[in-house]
Amino acid sequence: MRKELPLLVTILTGLFVIFGHDFAIGEKWQLINSMDKWQSISQAVALLIGAINLTRIHVNHVRRRKAGYIFSLLLLVCMWGYTVLGVIDGYKGVTFRWVYNALLASLDSTIFSLLAFYIASAAYRAFRVRTVEASLLLVSAAIVMLGRAPIGEAIWKGFPDWANWIMRFPNTAAMRAVLIGAYLGSFVTVLRILLGIERAHLGGVGGAGMK
């Protein structure tokens, strides 16, 4: 029953969505809309799971005085402190916004900006003219990079046009191929879940057990 009931719910929900989407009567009865409301409510409740889990793990760290427990304590103070501040102060609150703009925004941007450094080191390490294909990739990457920045234009006026051509045609063709394959793949995965063939999400190894 532990696995059958969730499977039954999955299958019924799948059929419900198809009926609500594809049939005019489903649209008239606003089935999808009512399901959306149910989902909104259950998602909001589920949000608590994350917070509770995080609290449970870090309270345990603090209680057992694990290495670095002070950071767990900091996490708990920040998480619950900011939650309380948000409830009291709201989006309009000066303190709430200050914490966001001065701390959260800066920390977020800092981690994202690592990308600039990592792109440089990854490109330096990985882009080698090992094969003809790799050389083609390298040349197109260089053209796009030069075409996307004014320095390319200053070197040669043709770079932006070439970069745009690469983006519009070879890039679009490859992206479409990957996307079509990915959509079909996801479609079949969903079908496998609906038919109950794939059940790893219910715990264990599902269909992918070691043979």
């Binding site: 969903v190 790893a200 999400h201 264990g204 190894v205 599902g206 269909g207 992918a208 057990g209 070691m210």
Partner: peptide
């Protein structure tokens, strides 16, 4: 997300 389910299917293994 179907991608997450692809992860679930590999994670057990």
């Amino acid at each position: 997300d179907p991608e997450t389910f692809a992860f679930f299917n590999t994670l057990g293994y």
